[in-house]
Design a protein around this nucleic acid. Structure first.
Length: 1047
RNA sequence: GGGCGAUUAGCUCAGUUGGUUAGAGCACUAGCUCGACAAGCUAGGGGUCACAGGUUCGAGUCCCGUAUCGCCCACCA
């Protein structure tokens, strides 16, 4: 192979295009149950088919692939289960919006089947795109097993789970207030609601008391921001203990006041004053009303002339509003709770389209806004309106239609959580499921601890339709006869409506399944999370007892982000336990979130999202992956300032809060304009698109390139390579050093990945590859490669070291490592120490390196560290003295005999790596007549400056250095003269300090000596008035004939 | 309102059970095209570890408080 032709820069595109198809064709990603091997399985958190993947997905999947690739190399039968999520509401919303925009068609005109068909088209398009993105990233998923939460296999799991839960009476129907979008006529979930402050009003009005006694108030005053809801009022509440409640409010405020900073105090003091005012002015009336409530007195609901009770309920806070609160159970979440507590009727005044229902009497058919206006006007007419205040209202809006949300009481399906939640909690408390980092367990347990029933129905068309049929008319006997002998149908009567709820396992029921009685299927679908909750077992074929399920379940780890610990992780644990009696995974690793430069999470709506394809286009998949791994620390989110890359001049420009939402941006560097993701107008779209990237991937890109060039060096120098044994005796100091370091790093990386410390693993590899392998081993190999007698051995060590390093890096940098692996295979068909062997056909299945404890040699590492110290010192002096690179220098090292002996075999490298020639090393070494020195722990390096010196600069430097050393020495002396330090600190620490002091004193002495010589010289020259005559000054130090110099 | 996390160099971040003179990458400065690599090499400058207390012989590290930022949950008649 013509390795000289290798490009100087790593061509990531070529490697990606070449090796991904190769891996797929070879079937490396596919896993089958294999009794001879241990299983390792991760299920992907299925991305939503709503859109393309962003950088958060890239991170999530990179972390999974790193583990998967490592485990595969470790010999496990490794399965990474891929797939996507139908993401019910989000996907339907996206498709509906597009339909409306592009075709002007609403879902109601299209109909259920038509819409669902369109969504399937969308799904197919985006699934392909998403899976394509994963492939580009190098994800080694078992694509043959790709699942979709709505496919037949998953659907079957959903039906079986639902059926059993229904049979176990865990699923029930009930009323619940939902966020109703009157425009789209659907309930939307809490996360699809945004709050926006809008100007509004706060109306105060009166309800007359029915039959007031002389000492009783004639009316109660209530206040509301939504006056039309009074039509649905079924009570007015007053606090059962207004005096106590006010006392408590005051006490709470007083407590806050004590700990409050000065600037908040006036506000709190004002609040306290308000509470006191209320106690003076309002308490008697509130207590009277409370007594009336307890006596069962009623008030008249104006306009509808309905009489409704006064109730005593703690929801009415005497410190707020009028102290009395109207109760509208069907249209307010808190009032609903009051309604349940007080056994109030629930009157729904809204139709699903947002108009008022028959319950609203004369206002029937009006919209909410119309009714509001009319109700206010009518109350005014009756003299019941007290006052109106302007007030800003934090109003809930639907994300999808941007219209205000109306809380509406509707029939929904629920899953009883009491036992299920407890099982999921126990699994974590007992340690059967460990959440890492551990701090996230609290949120999990707190959330489950509330044991709130899970509302599982959604008024959507895209999803798993609930397999329940209603029947109003049949008797129990009719059903028993119709379904005689069938254990795949169960039914029970709905307590509230009295109708039959019939659930069928796999086969849908026909309308005439019960002769003579019509069946009507439930139209709602299940919450998306219901099917996602089954993902770890449904993807493996459950309820079928497949070999895969048997072998791979439970999976080994779940890797996900923290915002779905409750929505998803908790529910997977719960269904896993319910369906299989086993947790779905023993560990959950929660990874950081990717934030933009302002510390905000990335999202489409903010416009600060980064498409991994843009990053890969610019930096390559390897850099994307390594960069992300390098940033994945345990405690920190990943802050990533985002840049536009100008398509004209390719310069990066920072994306600001302003530019990130602009359709077109002008490059400040070249003045060219480009479009962004917001471009909609044809004129904008015609501009070239500016990719959104981040310079935080440059580190990884540079590293990949470094690796590429190190590999290139090795391969260029493998000419004439012959495989062969390398006996330990043949190994040089640097060989033994690099092998020792390699063994250490192998152990570290293996251990770190086992505990998900990706950043530490990446750093260990980065530092070793760059600072040790490239900067030292490769540099030092150059000399030996030039010598025919040493060339074969160093080739073998180089090939082996590179081979091992590639394997360690493969999980993070799959393409580059495979590319080099294959090339290396052509050059070294057998390699490895001590005995060469043929390498694996692909690095993806090459064995993961074992940390070879026998290679770890602290003595050699210490020796090498000394060499590095001396080399650094010489280079330092060269640099600060501005010695031209090609000019040789001479130096001496004062050190103990052991160090001198250690350094001896490395002497030639000083010439190669620093253009420096040793004059002597050992304890008796004296500085040359004129020298620059560097002191390090236990040694002093003197560079002979006879021909080179800039005396003044060196004098200044030495004086500063001496001062610094003196300060440090003083500090140490003080510490060591402190009796309590000597007494209480561990002996080892004290000794360390003593050694350190001695060393500093030695450094001080050496520096003082050099300084003295330099000062004499400067003095001499000042006296003679002559410039240094470089030719005549003696370059030979006095000690060059000393015994130590002969070492 | 409750919970969690963060605050270390201009920027982005490491910093192990408390123990030598707090590190890296980018950016900056100076010098370098010597056959792996200028996406590089060599060296350098740059830090009151957010602020204020405490524990300790010793605090970036542990404890209390404050400020700022972020995330999650709840609530707002």
């Amino acid at each position: 192979m013509a390795n000289n032709d290798l490009p100087k820069q790593y061509d990531h595109k070529a490697a990606q295009e070449r090796w991904y198809p190769f891996w797929e064709e070879q079937g490396f990603f596919h896993a089958e149950p294999d009794a001879a091997r241990k299983p390792y399985c991760i299920v992907i958190p299925p991305p939503n088919v709503t859109g393309a993947l962003h950088l958060g997905h890239a991170l999530n999947n990179t972390l999974q692939d790193i583990l998967i690739r490592q485990k595969r190399m470790q010999g496990f039968a490794t399965l990474w289960m891929p797939g996507t999520d139908h993401a019910g509401i989000a996907t339907q919303a996206v498709v509906e919006r597009r339909l409306l925009q592009e075709d002007g068609v609403s879902r109601h005109t299209l109909g259920r089947d038509g819409l669902v068909e369109r969504i399937w088209q969308w799904k197919n398009e985006y699934e392909t795109r998403i899976l394509g993105q994963l492939k580009q990233m190098g994800c080694s998923c078992d694509w043959q097993r790709t699942r979709f939460t709505l496919d037949p296999v998953c659907a079957r799991a959903v039906r079986h789970t639902f059926f059993r839960m229904f049979k176990d009476r865990l699923i029930y129907r009930g009323k619940r207030l939902v966020n109703w979008d009157t425009m789209l006529r659907t309930a939307v979930s809490d996360d699809e609601v945004f709050h926006e402050a809008v100007p509004g009003h706060f109306w105060y009005f009166h309800y007359p008391v029915i039959g007031p006694k002389p000492d009783e108030p004639k009316q109660v005053t209530i206040a509301t921001t939504r006056p039309e809801t009074m039509l649905g009022d079924t009570a007015v509440a007053v606090h059962p203990d207004p005096a106590g409640a006010l006392d408590k409010a005051e006490a709470d405020l007083a407590a806050r006041l004590r700990s409050a900073p000065a600037k908040q105090r006036p506000e709190i003091e004002a609040e306290i004053e308000e509470v006191r005012r209320r106690r003076r002015e309002m308490l008697p009336e509130l207590e009277k009303l409370r007594d009336m409530a307890l006596a069962g007195r009623r008030v008249l609901l104006p306009l509808l002339n309905r009489d409704i009770p006064l109730v005593a309920d703690e929801w009415a806070k005497p410190e707020m509003g009028t102290g009395c609160v109207k109760i509208t159970p069907a249209h307010d979440p808190n009032d609903y709770e009051v309604g349940l507590r007080q056994n109030l009727p629930m009157v729904s005044i809204l139709n699903l389209d947002g108009t008022l229902s028959a319950e609203a009497g004369p206002y029937q058919g009006q919209t909410v806004m119309e009714a509001r206006k009319n109700v206010v006007a009518d109350l005014e007419k009756q003299g019941l309106m007290l006052k109106v205040e302007d007030r800003e209202i934090d109003l809930a809006h639907s994300d999808r239609s941007k219209t205000p949300i109306e809380p509406l009481l509707t029939d929904q399906w629920f899953l009883r959580m009491e036992q299920l939640a407890q099982m999921a909690m126990d699994a974590v408390v007992s340690g059967r499921v460990r959440i890492l980092p551990e701090r996230y367990t609290k949120g999990y347990l707190d959330w489950l601890g509330e044991k709130r029933d899970w509302p599982i129905s959604r008024q959507l068309w895209w999803g798993h339709q609930i397999p329940v049929w209603y029947c109003d008319s049949a008797t129990e006997k009719d059903l028993s006869m119709a379904f005689a002998g069938r254990d795949d149908v169960v039914w029970h009567r709905d307590d509230e409506s009295g109708q039959w709820l019939i659930c069928a396992l796999e086969e849908d029921l026909s309308d005439d399944a019960v002769p003579g009685h019509a069946l009507r299927r439930e139209q709602d679908v299940l919450d998306t999370w219901f099917s996602s909750a089954l993902w770890p077992h449904s993807t493996l074929g459950w309820p079928e007892q497949t070999p895969e399920l048997d072998y791979f379940y439970p999976t080994d780890v779940l890797i996900t982000s923290r915002d779905i610990i409750t929505l998803w992780v908790a529910r997977m644990v719960l269904t896993g336990l319910y369906n299989l009696g086993e947790v779905p995974f023993p560990e959950v690793y929660i990874h950081p979130k990717i934030l933009d430069g302002y510390g905000e999470g990335m999202s489409k709506s903010k416009g600060n999202g980064v498409d991994p394809l843009d990053v890969m286009e610019k930096f390559g998949a390897d850099s994307l992956r390594f960069g992300l791994a390098y940033l994945t620390t345990e405690t920190q989110d990943i802050r990533m300032p985002v840049d536009f890359e100008c398509p004209h001049c390719h310069k990066l420009m920072e994306q600001t809060r302003e530019t990130r939402v602009m359709p077109r941006v002008r490059c400040p560097a070249c003045g060219g304009e480009f479009s962004t993701q917001w471009a909609e107008k044809p004129a904008d779209r015609a501009l070239p698109r500016g990719a959104v990237v981040s310079d935080r991937f440059e580190l990884a890109r540079n590293f990949c390139n470094k690796l590429w060039n190190a590999s290139r060096f090795v391969m260029m120098n493998l000419e004439g390579y012959t495989p062969g044994e390398v006996a330990d005796a043949e190994l040089t100091v640097e060989d033994r050093w690099v092998l020792s370091r390699l063994a250490t790093v192998t152990g570290q990386v293996t251990d770190l990945l086992a505990v998900y410390k990706y950043a530490d693993a990446a750093r260990a590899l980065y530092d070793f590859a760059w600072d040790e392998f490239c900067s030292f081993f490769v540099e030092m190999a150059k000399a030996r490669l030039g010598n025919p007698s040493t060339r074969p051995a160093v080739q073998r060590v180089l090939a082996h070291t590179l081979d091992t390093l590639l394997r360690l890096l493969h999980p993070m940098i799959p393409f580059l490592t495979e590319d080099v692996w294959q090339r290396l295979g052509a050059l070294c068909p057998e390699r490895g120490l001590p005995t060469p062997e043929p390498p694996a056909s692909s690095i993806i299945v090459a064995p993961w390196p074992q940390p070879d404890a026998a290679r770890i040699d602290p003595h050699i590492e210490a020796q090498f560290a000394r060499f590095q110290d001396v080399l650094r010192a010489v280079r330092d002096i060269r640099a600060r003295q501005n010695v031209p690179p090609k000019k040789a220098v001479h130096f001496a090292v004062r050190c103990d005999p052991e160090t001198a002996a250690l350094l001896a075999p490395l002497e030639p490298y000083f010439a190669n790596m620093a253009g420096a020639h040793p004059l002597g090393m050992g304890p008796a070494v004296e500085p040359p007549a004129l020298s620059a020195n560097v002191t390090a722990a236990g040694l002093e390096v003197f560079v002979d400056l006879a021909e080179l010196i800039d005396v003044e600069a060196e004098l200044t430097r030495k004086r500063q250095e001496l001062d610094k050393l003196a300060t440090l020495i003083a500090g140490k002396e003080k510490k060591l003269s402190n009796a309590s330090f000597i007494d209480r600190a561990p002996a080892a620490v004290v000794q360390k300090e003593r050694d350190s002091l001695a060393d500093l004193q030695q450094q001080h002495a050496a520096t003082a000596q050099v300084l003295g010589q330099l000062a004499d010289d400067a003095c001499l020259r000042a006296r003679t008035g002559s410039q240094t005559d470089q030719g005549t000054r003696s370059g030979t130090p006095g000690n060059s004939e000393s015994p130590d110099a002969a070492l």
